[in-house]
Design a protein around this nucleic acid. Structure first.
Length: 800
DNA sequence: AGCACGCCGACT
DNA sequence: GTCGGCGTGCTC
């Protein structure tokens, strides 16, 4: 039967192209095919098939069916959904799920081993003799391994292969990952609270699996025994799950308009058949997404490990998403302690063959657990049974280039499409997730206490208006005393300051000149170690000048304010005999060195750590007992609508680093505004209070806690466009309801180029409808004068 | 993504 | 006069 195939191509194209299917080839939706496009041949995915209409067709033909597992229906629907929600061309969305091996990866290093062929070389040399002596045992080695062991170069080995003295044998590829054993460790190590939470969590499997699965291809799935709970355990009913949401908190049913906003609801008003299951999911069907909220040190990880174990027992696959930085050896070891082996990992750094093998193993179901960064969300799982999003509040889940998406939200969507539960884990959830939980869209499980009877650190404020540091110093007397006491006990102290470099502002004390970035409106930050002035906004760097560039005065450059480098200087003077390390993202020596240093700190090979937000995430420091926050007020005034939330999360996380080991911890917080709601909530240890206040405040301001808010970020390209810029600012001064205007300083640098161009960056979590809305609004507004184009860029990212 | 076409600045 | 910059548009 002659067919035409609609093939979606992984390029920035929004529509599938039609191709003729040659006789003898039968294609199904989801198949990966090769097709001609212009002058070249590329891979695409069959998005639809139709009987070829009678009569001749001038369509170009499909050139072949590629030997790649077809894209499952849920994955295809995820691509469609993502494209529509993020305003990205469908092809771009597809590209994320279809990273085919490029030629180099496919042909590259088919791993070969060598072993002795038992034949002497025709021309023996000293190097050859060494190599053959090592190979004489007859064992198979990698080429590199042999060369290294024999102390010869690779070309010697190659020469011997060519000569016939060594024979090359293909190596059986090592398995991409060993099978995790869900019962490697008994659950006896869990606390009562953890067991209870794990039980509640596992109840979600029953709600998840009982929902109808839509599998178009009629594959015989791996779903084994979906109905029988594991280990004879009686699954909790869905009511138990819903109970996690306090009844008095439940809000009235959402109106249709309210439906707009966060995933999993698609943008309103554009419903199509694909959206239907997602839409209805919000209206009282079993909760499938669960917020697992536990204070730092409560053992959330162990709890969701039990869910992973349950998933594996049922023969389905689990995906654990983590922010890239959290993918540490430490975490993988914890996994290994529970499951016997390290999990398969996936992140942007995995390339070439390994990447492809892992993809394939995920597609066949051979790999049962993947731990990965956000891109792992698009792996072609055969039978996905669980998604965990660890540290769900992390902004690293936002993809900001190419297709803009939030991996946490897409995880929720994929969970719906795959019919599997999704666990969002965090000690400090994002506002929108908290609201979703409050409204009953997500379940909520809370671990209010630390594991193993450990106490949360006491948090005390140091009021900087009263306890002033010495002139030119930044550690207040109580802070100095506390650090001194801690290190005297052999304990570790962390001084936290979220500012890289030496000083955030440099000025000339002779003429008052302030060093400013030539591209941005920001001050240049002195980096004393690198002897440079650096813009933290765009990366612009200049050598630190000897004399003032403005008035020429020597020795008048004055650093204003502290960065971590300056704190290190102060600490070195105060504690000359202590081991001090500065950890920030610009750590000299790169990520690998940084990783090593983090391990070393965790092992206790350091007394005082001075760090930026980097130390607040990912790593555990078991020897740490004192956390000193040097300026808790940074970030509270940033103008970012999420400023309060971000600051609270960061401070909560960083103070929570203290006392995770044997000894109890405490935290000191230097602040000028101890009564600020964020600081007060932190000090009281009542996270609830922060969330309640923040949500109430947004509601009072007419800004829904999530959904329906957009911000216009206005940026002008050049200084001579300042006038036009002013006009545009005036124009947006009266924005539509729910639209917030941010200044040009917040505009990402990428948007500040293009000469006669004027851009409005719209950040929104409303998806499509806000775009047409704003377009109408702009059309009705007066146009800027001169040769100025106005473009609207919609960044459909939830940023509120 | 690639590749063509097309329109303005500095050079063998 | 061309070479070459990248902006814009197209690929079933």
């Amino acid at each position: 039967m002659p067919q035409t195939a609609d093939v979606l191509i992984p390029l920035a194209l929004d529509t599938a192209y039609s191709y003729a299917v040659p006789d003898g080839l039968v294609l199904s939706v989801g198949d990966v095919v090769q097709i001609p496009l212009g002058p070249r041949e590329i891979a695409g995915v069959v998005w639809g098939v139709a009987e070829r209409p009678a009569g001749g067709s001038n369509l170009r033909p499909v050139t072949g069916l590629l030997d790649v597992p077809p894209l499952s229906e849920p994955l295809r629907r995820l691509v469609d959904w993502l494209a529509r929600y993020t305003l990205a061309p469908k092809g771009s969305a597809l590209a994320m799920a279809l990273r085919l091996p490029d030629e180099s990866a496919r042909t590259e290093t088919m791993r070969v081993g060598v072993r002795s062929a038992g034949k002497p070389p025709s021309r023996p040399t000293a190097a050859r003799a060494k190599a053959l002596a090592v190979a004489a045992d007859g064992a198979i080695r990698g080429k590199g391994a042999l060369a290294k062991e024999a102390g010869v170069s690779l070309s010697v080995v190659d020469g011997l292969i060519d000569d016939g003295a060594l024979e090359a044998v293909p190596l059986v590829p090592e398995p991409v990952a060993l099978r995790p054993d869900p019962d490697f460790l008994s659950t006896a190590h869990l606390s009562e609270a953890q067991s209870e939470a794990a039980k509640q969590l596992n109840a979600a499997f029953d709600t998840g699996l009982s929902s109808p699965r839509t599998r178009g291809e009629g594959r015989d799935g791996l779903v084994v025994d979906a109905a029988s709970p594991p280990g004879g355990g009686e699954g909790a009913s869905r009511d138990e799950l819903l109970l996690a949401t306090p009844p008095h908190r439940r809000l009235p049913p959402r109106s249709a308009d309210d439906e707009v906003g966060k995933a999993p609801s698609p943008p309103a008003g554009r419903g199509d058949a694909h959206d239907a299951p997602l839409m209805s999911a919000a209206a009282g069907r079993p909760v499938q997404t669960i917020l697992l909220e536990g204070v730092t040190g409560s053992g959330k990880t162990e709890v969701y490990f039990e869910a992973v174990a349950e998933c594996v027992r049922r023969g389905r696959q689990a995906l654990v998403l983590m922010p890239e930085i959290a993918l540490t050896a430490q975490f993988l070891d914890r996994f290994a302690a529970r499951f016997g082996v390290r999990p398969a990992t996936w992140h942007s750094g995995i390339g070439g063959r390994r990447r492809e093998r892992l993809r394939a193993a995920v597609a066949t179901g051979e790999v049962s657990v993947v731990v990965g960064a956000r891109s792992a969300l698009f792996l072609p799982f055969r039978e996905l049974g669980l998604i965990v999003v660890d540290e769900e509040h992390e902004s690293a889940y936002k993809q900001e280039d190419g297709v803009h998406y939030h991996a946490r939200d897409m995880a929720v969507v994929r969970g719906k499409l795959e019919g599997c539960p999704v666990v969002l884990a965090s000690a400090t959830p994002s506002i929108e997730t908290r609201v979703n939980a409050q409204r009953g869209r997500y379940g909520r499980i809370v671990l209010p206490e630390r594991f193993g009877g450990r106490r949360l650190p006491d948090i005390t404020a140091i009021d900087m208006r009263l306890d002033k540091p010495e002139r030119g110093r930044f550690l207040s007397p109580p802070m100095v005393a506390a650090v001194k006491a801690a290190v005297a006990e052999g304990e570790q102290a962390l001084l936290f300051l979220n500012r890289r470099g030496y000083a955030p502002l440099t000025l000339c004390s002779a003429c008052g000149h302030r060093y400013q970035c030539r591209n941005c409106s920001t001050w240049l930050v002195e980096h004393r170690f690198r002897k440079a002035l650096v813009c933290h906004h765009c990366g612009y760097t200049e050598r630190k000048p000897e004399a003032c560039v403005e008035c020429g005065a020597f020795d008048h450059l004055t650093p204003c304010g502290p960065g971590v480098e300056r704190i290190a200087e102060e600490a070195a003077e105060l504690f000359p005999d202590k081991r001090i390390i500065v950890l920030s993202s610009d750590f000299p020596g790169g990520t690998e060195r940084l990783r090593q240093e983090l391990e070393a700190v965790a092992a206790g090979e350091c007394d005082i750590v001075i760090g930026t937000q980097l130390v607040a995430k990912g790593h555990n420091f078991p020897h740490l007992t004192l956390v000193g926050v040097l300026d808790a007020d940074i970030g509270l005034t940033s103008g970012d609508p999420r400023a309060a939330e971000r600051t609270f999360q960061l401070l909560q996380q960083v103070t929570g680093r203290a006392g995770r080991g044997e000894r109890p911890g405490r935290a000191l917080v230097q602040t000028f505004q101890p009564d600020h709601p964020v600081i007060a909530a932190l000090l009281s240890g009542e996270a609830e209070r922060f969330y309640d206040e923040e949500i109430a405040q947004r509601e009072n301001a007419g800004l829904p806690p999530f959904g329906r808010l957009a911000a216009l970020i206005v940026s002008a390209a050049e200084r001579d466009l300042a006038e036009a810029h002013g006009q545009a600012m005036a124009r947006v001064a009266d924005p539509p309801a729910g639209v917030m205007v941010l200044g040009p300083a917040e505009a990402p640098l990428a948007l500040i180029r293009g000469r006669y161009r004027f851009r409005l960056l719209v950040k929104t979590d409303r998806g499509i409808d806000i775009q047409s809305y704003l377009r109408d609004w702009l059309d009705r507004s007066p146009k800027p004068r001169g040769n100025v184009k106005v473009a609207i860029d919609v960044d459909p990212q939830s940023f509120l």
